[in-house]
């Protein structure tokens, strides 16, 4: 057993574990590794995705603040150690798979919007997010209009009228407005081996 073949076996074990934990096949996990390599070497080539690298990929600039990018990063970073490792990347993207259940997608978005992680989406949090999206788009709304948007949203989503949206209320709300989960499905993930065909040069298995 040469060191090279031992390394290959270890890698195969890792790939097969990730495939069993997610909706991806081994070849698809390998194709995702091509994407991961690209993202994790864009600023610091250390095999980890730093927040600035995710920001560069999504916003085309590593500088500046973006509340939503921070939240996405935090949810990908399962171990909460400030970087996204490959297994965390594959786990999170699995939720964006077209075959992932809506319930999983809905839970992910709920956690994303529950900024202070209280188990509820509070009105103040929604206000903060609306202000953030307005700033991102260089838009401004007078406070009365902003409050009107919040009133309308909570009249629709906050069934028990306690000023916050519970996970159950959120589930009902997204069922009424499925477009709110549109971002949570990435059709590319169904054809990831075609999007990153170069994985075949490093593959451990031939499907």
């Amino acid at each position: 057993c040469s060191p090279e073949s031992q390394k290959g076996l270890r890698r195969y074990g890792e790939l097969s574990r990730l495939a069993s934990e997610t909706r991806f096949s081994i070849n698809e996990v390998e194709a995702l590794y091509e994407l991961f390599k690209k993202l994790s070497s864009s600023i610091i080539d250390d095999g980890l995705i730093h927040k600035e690298e995710l920001q560069l990929a999504l916003l085309r600039s590593p500088y500046g603040e973006n509340l939503f990018l921070d939240r996405v990063f935090d949810l990908f970073d399962e171990k909460r150690n400030g970087v996204i490792e490959f297994d965390e990347f594959v786990h999170a993207l699995s939720i964006f798979h077209p075959h992932a259940p809506m319930e999983e997608k809905s839970d992910f978005v709920f956690k994303l919007y529950d900024l202070t992680q209280t188990g509820f989406i509070e009105r103040e949090e929604v206000k903060q997010m609306v202000i953030a999206i307005l700033m991102e788009s260089d838009m401004w709304l007078p406070d009365n209009l902003l409050e009107a948007i919040l009133d309308k949203t909570f009249a629709d989503a906050d069934a028990d009228k306690d000023g916050r949206i519970s996970k159950e209320e959120w589930k009902v709300f997204v069922r009424k407005h499925p477009s709110l989960l549109k971002n949570m499905t990435l059709p590319y993930l169904k054809d990831i081996t075609t999007v990153f065909p170069s994985f075949v040069f490093n593959t451990e298995v031939e499907d």
Binding site: L58, V72, V126, I133, L145, I149, K152, T153, H177, S179
Partner: peptide, 26 residues
């Protein structure tokens, strides 16, 4: 839709920070 008829989450979901499809663009 105008902002008044739009619910807050529709607005929020337009953030570029939430559009992960960008990761796959070459």
């Amino acid at each position: 839709a105008s902002p008044v008829t739009m619910n807050a989450f529709e607005l929020i979901s337009k953030s570029r920070g939430l559009n992960l499809a960008t990761l796959f663009e070459k």
